[in-house]
């Protein structure tokens, strides 16, 4: 088995174990159990930190978009959601704001 295949197999097993451990540990607990609420807080905080970094300090191709165009997209999406509701509309509005701002700045 090639190194990349073995690495993938090990990662698949590790991720299955992480999921299984969570289902096993909390399966008989109530949703308002302190351990469950703590886990939900950690998961949500991790997601918030991930999004913050992806918007303000991204790597790779995403870094090619000017920071202000990324921020404008976020504000556009949130603004659209605030006044029109839904998810798909705000998502497309945010993308359009970023794309338009980026295109205008690129001349």
């Amino acid at each position: 088995m090639a190194g990349a295949d073995l690495a993938l197999l090990l990662l698949i097993l590790a991720c299955a174990l992480l999921r299984a451990a969570g289902l096993l540990v909390a399966g008989r607990l109530r949703p308002d159990h302190p351990f469950v609420r703590w886990a939900a807080s950690v998961a949500l905080a991790t997601l918030a930190a991930f999004i913050m970094l992806a918007i303000l300090a991204p790597g790779g191709a995403l870094a090619g978009i000017p920071w202000w165009a990324r921020a404008a997209g976020v504000l556009g999406a949130l603004g659209w959601m605030r006044f029109q509701g839904g998810m798909l509309g705000p998502l497309l509005a945010g993308l359009a704001v970023t794309a338009a701002g980026w295109a205008i700045s690129a001349g």
Binding site: L10, L18, R19, L23
Partner: peptide, 21 residues
């Protein structure tokens, strides 16, 4: 890189705990 990749996905554990009940 497997350990780093698994750590990057370690959020599965608290997510599964929060979801399971």
């Amino acid at each position: 890189a497997v350990l780093g990749a698994a750590t990057a996905n370690a959020r599965f554990l608290p997510m599964a705990v929060a979801l399971s009940p």
